[in-house]
């Protein structure tokens, strides 16, 4: 056994918590970013996250292949995205209301189908052991990084580039900012939004797979504990920019570890307060970055508007 880390354990714990726990936030917020850029909100990603976690765990258990589980989580996300994309674009349908319905539907379906998978242990995703250079087991454990996390980190700059520099990215932004202009260009708003929502849900499903196949690495009904909803809010916090989604996800992932890490070195007062630190942090950043002179920048223009008649 190694020597106790003592106070060094706190920063290490937070770094390790960031590397372990931020992948679900990252995938869901990137997915939601893509969705909202096209002008629709998908609150149902909490349900999609649970559905992804459940199907990844179930398929991994049944087939013995965790990567197949990840794929099926993505497919489950695609299906949920299709339902949301189809419903929320019907005339006079509100996407927020559909999203709330999708949270209930997704979590209910995941709980129902997931019943047989609560007890068995499914094969977990392999990790990349980047800590082999260190003699210290805590450092080695902290640097067991999930490939899903690395994929998520890679997607963020790619998505940023995609929005800024590609034709497809421009189309999505046009549909989200000014549907009339997009329609004048001859773009099908319906199709662009449907595909954006589906792709976003695909990513959230993968985020669910990270929950059940990497960390905490088990399927239970409380596995997400609201992370999907928080990630949707992160997108506003990140002002609809993929790179900032990445930073915000890292912040929230790390903040989850603050409470336990401090208690483990003997700071045992105020643990409810430390557990609430991500939210306090968010409030602080929102207050610091807000301005009385302008409204929220970066909001896609058509976000929250009612559906136009389909062309």
């Amino acid at each position: 056994m190694a020597e106790a880390l003592g106070w060094l354990g706190v920063p290490l714990g937070i770094i390790a918590g960031t590397l372990r726990g931020s992948a679900p936030f990252l995938f869901v917020s990137l997915g939601e970013c893509l969705t909202e850029k096209s002008g629709k909100i998908n609150l149902g990603l909490e349900g999609t996250l649970l559905m992804g976690a459940m199907s990844a765990y179930g398929i991994s258990y049944l087939t013995g292949s965790p990567w197949l589980g990840v794929l099926s989580a993505g497919v489950a996300g695609l299906l949920f995205g299709f339902i949301h994309g189809f419903l929320s674009q019907q005339p006079r349908v509100n996407d927020v209301a559909v999203g709330i319905a999708m949270i209930i539907f997704g979590s209910g379906l995941a709980f129902f189908l997931g019943k047989p998978f609560i007890q068995p242990s499914a094969p977990q995703l392999p990790t990349l052991d980047l800590g082999a250079w260190s003699q210290s087991p805590p450092v080695q454990a902290a640097l067991q990084i999930s490939p899903l996390f690395l994929i998520g980190v890679a997607i963020a700059p790619v998505m940023q580039w995609f929005f800024r520099s590609t034709r497809w990215g421009l189309l999505i932004r046009a549909v989200g900012d000014s549907p009339d202009a997009a329609r004048a260009m001859g773009v099908s708003i319906y199709k662009v939004r449907l595909l954006s929502i589906m792709a976003g849900s695909f990513l959230s499903g993968i985020g669910g797979a990270s929950l059940s196949l990497y960390y905490p690495g088990s399927w239970s009904e409380r596995i997400s504990s609201g992370q999907g909803l928080m990630a949707v809010a992160l997108v506003i916090f990140a002002k609809w920019r993929p790179m900032q989604c990445l930073y915000a996800s890292l912040l929230f992932g790390g903040a989850q570890a603050i409470g336990p890490a401090l208690q483990s070195v003997g700071i045992d007062s105020y643990y409810y307060l430390f557990n609430a630190s991500p939210y306090i942090l968010t409030l602080l950043i929102m207050i610091i970055t807000c301005s009385p002179k302008r409204t929220l920048t970066g909001v896609p223009g058509a976000l929250g508007r009612t559906n136009e008649s389909r062309l």
Partner: peptide, 10 residues
């Protein structure tokens, strides 16, 4: 997270 921090504290 709590289990991991405990393991880190030996």
């Amino acid at each position: 997270e709590a289990t991991n921090s405990m393991a880190d504290q030996s």
